[in-house]
Design a binder for these strands. Structure first.
Lengths: 157, 157
DNA sequence: ATGCAACCTCAACCTAACTTGAGATCAAGC
DNA sequence: GCTTGATCTCAAGTTAGGTTGAGGTTGCAT
């Protein structure tokens, strides 16, 4: 009897992490962690009293979220990356290498885009046209490539 | 008399632009133009019947907004840049050169930041640690440099 | 067995940059 | 003068990534 009670205590305190401790250990706020659960990024178990308990692997999962966020991915994109893994597994070192490589592509692309903008801006500084019709910055390469909210097309002046 | 009427007509139809035409000529929606006015970025005059009428210089002003937005400035930052100009003048070619130079700085900085991240990621691909404690991406240079909403500090795993 | 910190849910609020809709008015051609 | 399209205001909705607060419950140590 004593033995069983001890086992039970050991299991719950060593491997089931309450949300406050998760917050302390990840640097997130409690509300942010709940928010991520809401978005389906983590799925803690619950105690009989309905309190969240996280597994150690959730720390790894949260680490992944934070790092990917740092790399500029939205929570939606992060969710997608994690769901690519078989059985919704928490990413391990091998997965991380694969995902990192794909993220590297995004970074490269973003850098290239900014470099193009910078070069166009250099040409533009001498020009000072401020005409949407002619501006190389406002009219990058593709005309009318419209997506999402925001300015749609270009004519002006 | 005839002369005066002609002048008046010439003035209003050539130089006072209704919001719909502004929209057509800038590619913005009517609601976006009203929104920019709301934010203080443009200040059209009004007709007796309370309709907005824009000056030709407002086309230039809107061009500036759109180009600066393309360069990654928020509407607030754009407003600040425009208010730097004496008498709230619409930016001309000389102003544009000054502002462009300052914007170029931001772009350079952003590129440098992404390059650092990319290089850290390269180191990280081989590591696969996924530990917030050690991760070079999540722990760039400065610890606890917290600003705005979002993750605050780092400990984990 | 009790006190209190930690936890729970749900709703509302926040910024940015707009859009959408309702209900009313204006301007211009015929 | 009438119709019709363009405009007007004002309120509410949208997405992302959360925060804040109210009001209520749990869990653990003493």
């Amino acid at each position: 009897m004593y033995y069983v009670r001890k086992m039970a205590k050991s299991l719950s305190s060593r491997d089931l992490i309450p949300i406050g401790e998760m917050a302390r250990r990840t640097g997130l706020t409690v509300s942010a962690i709940r928010f991520y659960e809401d978005k389906g990024l983590i799925e803690p178990v619950r105690t009989g009293g309905n309190q969240r308990r996280f597994l150690r692997s959730d720390l790894r999962r949260v680490s992944f979220i934070l790092i990917a966020q740092q790399l500029g991915l939205s929570l939606g994109e992060i969710d997608q990356e994690m769901r690519k893994l078989p059985y919704g597994r928490t990413p391990n070192a091998r997965d991380w290498r694969a995902i990192s490589a794909s993220i590297r592509g995004r970074i490269e692309a973003r850098i290239a885009e900014l470099e193009r903008t910078r070069d166009r801006l250099d040409g533009c500084i001498g020009c000072g046209c401020l005409s949407l019709e002619k501006c190389a910055i406002y009219n990058p390469d593709d005309k009318l490539a419209s997506q999402g909210p925001g300015p749609r097309q270009v004519l002006a002046q």
